[in-house]
Nucleic acid binder design. Structure first.
Length: 420
DNA sequence: TCTGGGGTCCTAGGACCC
DNA sequence: TCTGGGGTCCTAGGACCC
C-alpha cells in the first residue's frame, strides 16, 4: 500500500507576513484580498476572535481595530516566492511531489518506509521552519483523501504538527468523529444531501454502498468512498501538466464607465494571461471576455455579458490576444452602466509544439515567437512590465488598490529589507 | 467608499452525423 | 407521410477546491 503525505502551511499568508515582522508572533493578523475587499487569511489569534474567512473587511474594520488586529493587503509576489522556497525544501526530501496549491503539496513516501516516517516528517517540518521560517502541518496515510484528514488532525489535534493515520485503530477512531463536510471534495451542497441519507461522519460514508451513492451523486463520490477505505483512486500528479484554461480578471479600484478604461484593463489582463500561456509553453485557440456591473449594488442597473473569439491558428502572441480581447469587449460594452469587473479566459490550450502549419503564415509565426521570447526575457531580467503594450494604459486609474501592502522583500531589489 | 481570484471535474442537453 | 438508434462533440451550469 502506498503512503501519501500532505504538507500544508499554517495560515500561509498571515505566516508569510510574520516571517518579516517577528513582533507579530502571538498577535492577531489578517490578510485582505484585492482592493482590500475581503479577509482571506487569519492567524490563529484572529480566528479565535471569531473573524470569519471571506468576510468583507469594512464590516469588521471597527471590531478589528478594537482588538488591535494587524491588517495587511495581500502581497502575492511575496507569497509566491515563499511558497517556492517551501516546495524546494520538500523536493530535496522526497522526489515524488505534487504541488497542489500555493501552500500545499502531496508527497509519495513509498520509498521511505524503511525508516520511521513520523521522525522523518518531524525533521522535515523542523527544517522548513528553520530554513524558510514558516510553520507547516504534515499528515500521512494510505490515500490522498485520508492524508487530508490526517493533516487536519495534525493542525488541530496534535502538539507535534505531524499526524499518522496509517494505523487502523487510530483511523477508526478519527473517522468515526470526523464530520463529512470536512472531507476533501464534500462541500456544502453535498453534505446537506448526505445528511438526508443519514450519513454524518467519515465512517458513515466509508461504510456506505459506493454503487448506490454513485447513482445518487456521481463518480466523484464513489472515488471518495474508495479512498476512505484505503484504496487509492486519486494518484499523485507529479508532472507540471499545464493548466487547461487561464483566467485573468480583477475588480476595479473605482467605478468604471468608459470604454477606454475598460479597454486598458482588458488589455492588461490579456497581456498577463498571454504571459502565463507562454510560460507553460502553450497556445490558445479560443478566448472569452466578460464584463459585469457590481451585483452587490442591487439598486443600480445591472448588466453582464461575455463574448468569444476563435483563432484560426492557435496563438500565444500578446498582440493577437489583446486585439481579439478588445474586439470582444467592444461587442458586449453598453453605455450608461457602472462596471465593476472584466476579465479574459484562455481556453482550448495546447502545447505550442503542436503547430498546425499554414503555408503562408509560417514565417510570420516564427517571427511572432521570437518577438514574444524577447519581450519575456527582458521582463524576466529587469522585472515585470519593464516593457509593455501601450494599450494597457499608463496611469491605470481603474487599478485595484492595496493600501496596506508590505514590501516585496524577496523579489524586488528596491524593497529589500534594511537592517539598521 | 468598501463584498477576491484562479482553478478542476462532472453532467445534462443540444447540434450534428450516419 | 412517416421518423429509430447510436455516437461524438461542444457548451453551460453546478459543485468543489485553495
Amino acid at each position: 500500500m502506498s503512503i501519501f503525505a500532505l504538507v500544508d502551511c499554517n495560515n500561509f499568508y498571515a505566516s508569510c507576513e510574520r516571517v518579516f515582522k517577528p513582533f507579530l508572533e502571538g498577535k492577531p493578523v489578517v490578510v485582505l484580498s484585492n482592493n482590500d475587499g475581503c479577509i482571506i487569511a487569519r492567524s490563529n489569534e484572529a480566528k479565535k476572535l471569531g473573524i470569519p474567512m471571506g468576510a468583507p473587511f469594512f464590516k469588521w474594520e471597527f471590531e478589528m481595530r478594537r482588538n488591535k488586529v494587524h491588517v495587511y493587503s495581500s502581497n502575492y509576489e511575496l507569497y509566491g516566492d515563499m511558497s517556492q522556497r517551501v516546495m524546494d525544501v520538500l523536493a530535496m526530501h522526497c522526489p515524488d511531489i505534487e504541488i497542489y496549491s500555493i501552500d500545499e503539496a502531496f508527497l509519495l513516501l513509498d520509498g521511505f518506509t524503511w525508516q520511521d516516517l513520523n521522525n522523518y516528517m518531524l525533521d522535515l517540518r523542523q527544517k522548513i521552519k528553520q530554513w524558510v521560517g514558516l510553520p507547516v502541518s504534515i499528515g500521512f496515510a494510505h490515500t490522498k483523501t485520508l492524508a487530508k484528514i490526517a493533516n487536519y488532525m495534525a493542525k488541530n489535534h496534535s502538539d507535534s504538527g505531524v499526524f499518522d493515520l496509517c494505523d487502523s485503530k487510530v483511523r477508526e477512531k478519527v473517522l468515526s468523529e470526523f464530520p463529512i463536510e470536512k472531507i476533501w471534495g464534500i462541500g456544502r451542497q453535498l453534505s446537506i444531501r448526505l445528511k438526508d441519507l443519514n450519513i454524518h461522519t467519515a465512517r458513515d460514508l466509508r461504510n456506505a454502498d459506493p454503487k448506490r451513492l454513485r447513482s445518487h451523486f456521481s463518480v466523484v463520490m464513489e472515488k471518495i468512498i474508495s479512498e476512505l477505505r484505503g484504496k487509492s483512486c486519486i494518484s499523485l500528479e507529479t508532472l507540471a501538466s499545464g493548466r487547461k484554461q487561464i483566467i485573468s480578471s480583477r475588480s476595479f479600484g473605482k467605478q468604471v464607465t468608459k470604454l477606454e478604461e475598460l479597454e486598458e484593463a482588458i488589455s492588461t489582463y490579456a497581456a498577463t494571461a498571454a504571459e502565463k500561456l507562454r510560460e507553460q509553453e502553450s497556445v490558445t485557440r479560443n478566448i472569452t471576455v466578460f464584463l459585469h456591473t457590481n451585483t452587490f449594488r442591487e439598486n443600480s442597473p445591472q448588466y453582464g455579458n461575455h463574448a468569444n473569439h476563435k483563432f484560426i491558428i492557435p496563438t500565444a502572441d500578446t498582440r493577437q490576444i489583446v486585439t481579439a480581447a478588445k474586439k470582444c469587449l467592444r461587442n458586449i460594452y453598453r453605455k450608461n452602466y457602472i462596471y465593476h469587473k472584466t476579465g479574459i479566459i484562455l481556453q482550448n490550450l495546447m502545447p505550442d509544439t503542436v503547430e498546425q502549419y499554414d503555408l503562408l503564415t509560417f514565417p510570420e509565426r516564427q517571427q511572432s515567437k521570437k518577438m514574444m521570447a524577447l519581450v519575456d526575457s527582458i521582463n524576466n531580467l529587469y522585472g515585470k512590465d519593464t516593457i509593455f503594450y501601450c494599450a494597457q494604459g499608463i496611469e491605470k486609474p481603474w487599478l485595484a488598490h492595496f493600501n496596506k501592502r508590505t514590501p516585496r522583500y524577496t523579489t524586488r531589489w528596491q524593497e529589500l529589507m534594511k537592517v539598521k
